[in-house]
Write a protein that binds this DNA or RNA. Structure first.
Lengths: 346, 346
DNA sequence: ATTCCACTTGTTAACGTTTTCATCGAAGGG
DNA sequence: CCCTTCGATGAAAACGTTAACAAGTGGAAT
């Protein structure tokens, strides 16, 4: 391994000069700088990250904790994080808890020790009840905790839009297939649905669950959804919606005719399945990017006030939602939303 | 931050004893050991990774480089890597090149500097032509390079099984939608298909492409596949197969009646789409685990000989493949494979 | 001409850990 | 009873880097 000492020897200067030439080129004479840089290049010098981290008290790495990397939603968040981190020269540790709260706490503990900050995506564990985090810089994604900075899609707006869409199609009995009890988004959406229901007394909302936020969870919910008598279902995310839809179809019902189905996140799954899935869309890559920005800022200024960044979210209508077949459809009370996605106000 | 020094002070011993008590409990007297451990626990001591790394000359971290984290295949590999790495106490840096060879080399360069070893998944760049890797321990996944250790699915067996399956259904003109030119798996499969074709002169194989290994790539290939006159298509991976299938259906053809489609990797997409996709299956999580094992071993013993680990792979038949409709179907020359997956010999 | 300041470079301590070497005491064999 | 040996512990060096401080040079201002 070639160190700063080797470069110093080759360039005929002291190690301090090499360090300066690399970190702050203006603080060293032009001729010396060129000589040092040339030597470093010739020898193929790479700074030792451990030494640098030890000295500076930071690692130049951040941690990303997700509940399920095979869920397209988190994969896309990870991509956004990866992009932004790379442009800032910090590395990303990725940990996948596989939906296991205990593993999540374990992984988080490990991450805290070797990163400058942590990105917590949709945590399933009750982070507040553990002291794992301490004063470690952290940013939550799809979760708000005390005064910590957070980034989330404004899926309250999305949930409301979805519900209004189903209502305007004529649905009156609508099921919501809930996700993990610790999900912040889930709680917010349930509140939003409740609020809409209160505005429209004719609506009947069945909150079902919790179910695992997976294809299997959606399959498992199918029977209960059908038994509830709902003519439309809103699922915790696309993965659940797809599982639900597949199972409902396997049971001999038709989507959307016998049951309309809508999801959240608008992952690429929506256009792959038949019928194409109506879903609440948001810019998920941007969620990852913004969260990374917030974290890097928090690392710089640990005492900055936490803020909640809400990114816009809106409904994208596809083929899995339609007017209910089994009852007389009243005239829509509002004109149907346009087929093209329309950005909502954040 | 609480250091070994603080623990030493609290326990009334020297820092060397603390270090020993933590690393090698048998080399210190029982009473002292208990006192040290209690002090460490009370103070909440966590070893400083950077210092440890600097001293030991290793980072206890490995790098994982993938071309596309949103591809379920790589997400599952990442999961396997993550599992195994966690059980060995090493952290995983994940880098997503987003199918860009230049980014791949860049990311790899960054990874090499701060890890003990690197896992290269289906590299798109010509790694051999760069000196990025140097003597850094590396394991290839779905790629074989010189004497480096590698793990891959034996998709030669899978490709042969798929082709034989299509042939036994009566297909005579079969398209292969190829992936990136630098893909090792792709080259191996093409050779395998060629070999089968030589055994069966009646078969006509159209190798089309290269196409991007994405849904879009599959869509883009649809027209060419149809124009080729093939009655069945084998796609580079499930994602491509799904894109192809969607587009073919959108063009008014029926799958499998007008065109049979099969993919590789058997990701969870296969059962979500309609019709369910016939695909070549392998234990992808295990690929990630084995690759990690190989890498950790290589880090311990850098001069060990490289080996190529091939994991078994077999065809899973679903609804996207059927006898061709448009021509007289000759009697199958072999009995059709069973509907349940049958493990192939590695 | 003297003083002072800006600029450039070198010396050295420090980050937290592991490990080598030395030291000390006790136990055991002659 | 002395010498050896071994077990337990401490002191200190080293890993590669950065930054605080020191020191040297030159020129400009007085």
């Amino acid at each position: 391994m070639v160190t700063i000492k080797d470069v110093a020897g080759a360039a005929g200067v002291s190690i301090a000069t090499v360090s300066r030439a690399l970190a702050d080129p203006d603080r060293v004479a032009a001729a010396t700088r060129d000589r040092v840089l040339a030597a470093a290049d010739a020898l193929g010098y790479t700074p030792n990250r451990a030494a640098r981290g030890l000295r500076a008290g930071r690692t130049n790495a951040i941690g990303l904790l997700v509940p399920d990397l095979t869920n397209p939603y988190f994969a896309v968040v990870a991509r956004g994080v990866s992009q932004r981190a790379r442009s800032h020269g910090v590395a990303v540790f990725v940990a996948d808890s596989e939906e296991d709260p205990a593993a999540e706490v374990d992984l988080l503990r490990g991450l805290v020790g070797q990163t400058d900050g942590v990105l917590l995506c949709s945590p399933r564990a009750l982070i507040r009840d553990t002291d794992v985090l301490g004063a470690h810089p952290a940013v939550f994604v799809n979760h708000a905790l005390d005064a910590a900075p957070s980034v989330a899609l404004d899926d309250v707006a999305g949930a409301v839009a979805a519900l209004e869409h189903l209502r305007s199609l004529g649905h009156r009995s609508i099921a919501y297939v809930a996700g993990p009890t610790t999900s912040w988004s889930d709680a917010r959406r349930r509140d939003a649905l409740q609020a809409v229901a209160e505005r429209h007394p004719e609506l009947e909302i069945h909150v079902l669950g919790p179910y695992p936020p997976t294809v299997e969870g959606g399959s498992a919910a199918a029977g209960v959804v059908i038994a509830s008598g709902a003519t439309a279902a809103l699922a915790f995310n696309d993965t659940v919606a797809v599982g639900l839809m597949r199972r409902v179809i396997a049971l001999g019902l038709r989507v959307p005719h016998d049951l309309s189905v809508a999801g959240f996140d608008d992952t690429y799954l929506t256009t792959l399945v038949t019928p194409a899935l109506t879903s609440v869309h948001g810019d998920v890559t941007e969620v990852g990017r913004r969260a990374t920005d917030l974290l890097l800022d928090r690392i710089e200024r640990p005492d900055a006030p936490g803020e909640l960044v809400l990114l816009p979210s809106w409904l994208v209508q596809r083929d899995s939602t339609a007017p209910p077949l089994s009852r007389l459809v009243p005239a829509p009370t509002t004109s149907p939303a346009p087929a093209e996605p329309t950005p909502g106000a954040p």
